[in-house]
Design a protein around this nucleic acid. Structure first.
Lengths: 107, 107
DNA sequence: CGGATGATTGAATGGTTATTCATGTGAGGT
DNA sequence: ACCTCACATGAATAACCATTCAATCATCCG
């Protein structure tokens, strides 16, 4: 069984199914993180403050998002700043993310 | 922890998180089914023929989609015809589904 | 009424994934 | 150097989920 809805990861060249990407997004915490990042980069402490989850748990979720290349991280002093990956940023105004296989808009 | 991204199920009145709906979609088989149904209603045998999964497995997935009210089913003689639920059908042309909390377009 | 076709259900199993706890790392302040 | 703040990692556990098998239900036809 193989879905037609696949897209090629730019960096690895491996084929990533749309379902796999959606699976990353299909989590309350991770979706909330993406929501936050739609309004701009934030460091972990800020994300954590707005979501109110355990820090270590958030860290695990951030790693899943990073591995899926939905977000990018860079260090800034003691903080680590997360932002939406360029590849998923929607060009049109309004909150939307582009997964390659599909576009998700949060009306 | 509670996401802002929630929507109220019309029939049950219960609150359904966006993540939960995405979780239903985040599966190769179920996503492929939705893809098929975007081009119109089909009965189980037809879906099965185009996907090539075990019939009983498809049935389980169809139940998940039904429970999530993403698809509707009606009996037609020996067949059972599945179609996209009205509530998720996109009004704009092009293949898209409306989850309430967000809109997913398959470009 | 059988029997055949088309589809659903339930139980069992294995694999995946979220969560927690304990620990480790990196950077700035004193 | 030491301590503290900010975050990440790894292992362990528990919950969940997809898949398979066996059995059942519904409809049509001879």
């Amino acid at each position: 069984m193989k879905s037609e809805l696949t897209v090629v990861d730019e960096a690895l060249g491996t084929e990533v199914s749309c379902a796999k990407v959606l699976k990353v997004l299909a989590d309350e915490t991770r979706l909330a993180v993406i929501e936050q990042l739609l309004s701009g980069p934030m460091h972990v402490g800020q994300i954590n403050a707005s979501l109110g989850v355990e820090q270590t748990l958030l860290s695990h979720h951030l790693r899943v998002l990073r591995d899926a290349r939905l977000v990018a991280s860079r260090r800034d002093g003691k903080h680590v700043v997360y932002s939406l990956a360029k590849s998923v940023q929607g060009q049109r105004r309004g909150r939307a993310i582009n997964l390659g296989c599909c576009l998700i808009s949060f009306d």
